[in-house]
Amino acid sequence: METAISGAILAIVTTQKDKVASGVPVFFAKDQEEVQRTCILLSRVLKAMTHDLENGVYILVRH
């Protein structure tokens, strides 16, 4: 079994700089399209699931 962090926020993707602070890697995107694209890429790389917080902030969590 591979050792992996699960149940923790691995990354944040957002267009809104005022909504997030540091603590986990944050990726700022210029528009919604870039947010989705970045989320897909990070999902694949981190084997994590993208969740939408419905305020313009997307988090990546491995379950």
Binding site: C39, T50, H51, D52, Y58
Partner: peptide, 8 residues
């Protein structure tokens, strides 16, 4: 569940 990706 919560699904963030529009494609999915």
């Amino acid at each position: 569940m919560n699904v963030g990706l529009e494609d999915q």
